[in-house]
Each structure stands twice: as C-alpha cells, then as structure tokens.
C-alpha cells in the first residue's frame, strides 16, 4: 500500500474550488463543434492515462490474488498469467489453518487501532493549539514539528528501544502503541486543514461560551471529517502493516503483528519450504481488513463538506 497515492482532502477549500469550477463550466456558452471534438479527444487522453495509471496501481494486488490460487510450479512457469489454470480456493483455507492468522490480524488491528486513536487525538489537539490559540511560542512549536519531519525514522530506533526498555515495555503491545503515538504527519496535515476553518466560527463559539476542547470537538472536527478519515486511514494502514519496528520490539510468538507473523511462518521458519502460493494467500488475507476499512472510509473522504457557513 503506498500512501502517496491517496489524494489528501484539505478541508473545504478544494470542494468549493471544484464547485466554482463546475459553475464556470455551466455558465459557458454553447461551443462550436471543433472545440467539442478537441475537448472529447483531451478527455480520451486523460481517461486512458488515468486508466493506465490505475492498472499499474492495481496490478500487484491482482497478481498477488492470482498467485495465491496457482500452484507453486505454475507461479514460476507462467508468472504473468493473471488467470490461473485452476482456481484453487482451498489454498486460502489451508493457509489460514496453518498459522494463527486470526490472532495476528487481531494483534495488528488492536495495535493499529489504539495507536491511530491516540495519534488522532493528540494531533488534533496540537494542531488546534498552533492554529487557533494565541501564544508566543506557537511558531517555534510548529518549526520543531517540521524539523522532526525531516528526521529519518530509523535514527529513532535505538533511543526509543532504550527508553522502552527502561520503562519495561519491550515485547508488549503497550510499548508498541506508546512508541508510535505521536505523528508528525498528523500534526502537519491537520494544521493545514484547521487553517481553513474560518476564525469567525471559533470566535462565535467562544462568545457562545464553549471552552477550547468543546470548540475543537463540536465545531472544528465535524467540519474536517474528510481529513480525519484520511488521517485515520493512513495512520491505521501504516501501523497495521508496520514491520521493522515491531520485529525489533516483539519477541513472543503470540504477540506478533501480521507482517512479522507472515514472515516467521512462511519464510523464516521454512517448514513449508518457500511456498509462494501460500505466502500470496497469507498476504491477501492480511490486506483484506484494510480493504474493508478503506471502503468504509472512502465515502467520508470523498463526500467532503458542502459549505463552511461563512460568506467570504
């Protein structure tokens, strides 16, 4: 799953822009045939380009799916064959039974869910503070966050490991959750979104007597649903799929997350040899919850919000 391909909705602004664009298009006078042809051909180019890009994106997934239903030999003899000679659905059953998948998925799901929840709460509060509260050091704080953004994650492994060891949280889900509970991206992204919330709405709420937490919860967040869904999805996927850091931290078998679990069972332990069709099936099973989640979130992400209630 690549995170770059997700279009980040920046609050209401883009939606309005699109609506304005639509209006402009509607307002256009009737166009002569030549321009119609031109626009049709440009549409064709656009669509074929997008379809091509979409195919490239979806190919690894489809290939994984088809691979899981081929036999191990067929994977290597006909690697580009999308449709297997025989749909061997029972691979899934065999794979699922051969490893504690339910447990791993559950582990990944819990860790990702709680991490994401905490990340969303603290990112929202941080972003609210640096966008809507007036205090002297807010720019400094923002720059510190930006500076952290430039730090490669691997650099933090050793200090984080030592800290967690001192806290006695190695080899535990709590340790995993705590060590991922702050997201620079979350702060950065929500800051951009909160900047688009009209300040007069927050002032109106202050006059109405709402405290800052109430304003964040009842006024700001409901207007940023699309952005929140996006952040939720990105953070969740990252944590669900995360491999390197959990594999350093988790040593007990039954605490493994899905990515480490798959590796241990089908690659490292090697009791099945390298059974690629089972590896493919395992990966497919691992990705399924994410797909379901994505389908649920997609509606919110695409819907945006119609109007921001203030007149520009």
């Amino acid at each position: 799953m690549s995170t770059q391909s997700i279009d980040l909705p920046l609050g209401n602004y883009q939606v309005q822009q699109q609506q304005a664009d639509k209006k402009q298009k509607l307002a256009k006078p009737a166009t002569p045939v030549s321009t119609l042809l031109k626009s049709a051909s440009s549409l064709l180019v656009k669509h074929s380009f997008l379809s091509f890009a979409g195919l490239i994106m979806v190919f690894p997934f489809v290939w994984m799916l088809s691979g899981s239903m081929k036999s191990n030999d067929e994977i290597f003899s006909n690697p580009l064959n999308i449709f297997p000679e025989q749909f061997r659905w029972q691979t899934f059953v065999e794979t699922f039974e051969s490893a504690p998948f339910g447990l791993y998925i559950m582990n990944s799901f819990t860790v990702a869910f709680f991490t994401t929840l905490i990340v969303m709460i603290n990112s929202a509060m941080f972003a609210y503070a640096i966008t809507q509260l007036k205090f002297k050091s807010r720019t400094v704080l923002y720059f510190i966050v930006m500076a952290c953004y430039m730090l490669p994650g691997a650099v933090t492994y050793i200090p984080s490991y030592i800290t967690l060891a001192n806290l006695g949280l190695l080899d535990s889900h709590t340790g995993l959750i705590i060590s991922n509970a702050a997201s620079v991206f979350g702060v950065f992204y929500l800051r951009q979104v909160f900047l688009k919330v009209h300040p007069s709405l927050i002032e109106a709420a202050r006059i109405d007597g709402a405290g800052e937490v109430k304003i964040l919860w009842a006024i700001v967040l409901p207007q940023c649903k699309a952005a929140l869904a996006t952040l939720f999805l990105i953070t969740f996927i990252t944590n669900y799929n995360s491999y390197m850091w959990p594999s350093l931290l988790i040593t007990s078998q039954d605490l493994n997350l899905i990515a480490t679990g798959i590796r241990q069972f089908f690659i490292a332990e090697g009791n099945y040899g390298l059974n690629w069709s089972q590896i493919m099936a395992a990966s497919t099973i691992a990705v399924m919850p994410l797909l379901i989640l994505f389908i649920i979130c997609q509606k919110t992400i695409l819907s945006g919000i119609a109007d921001n209630g203030v007149k520009e």
């Binding site: 007069s200 709405l201 002032e203 109106a204 202050r206 006059i207 709402a210 919000i305 209630g309 203030v310």
Partner: peptide, 18 residues
Amino acid sequence: PKDRGISMVFQNYALYPH
C-alpha cells in the same frame, strides 16, 4: 467573551455549517 454578557453578529454570519 462568554462572561461579558454580549452577543455578536458577524459580517460573514459565522453559522456553524454542520
């Protein structure tokens, strides 16, 4: 603001959109 006994009407209405 909330303790000043005031209400304010803004130029851009500032109605909560949701």
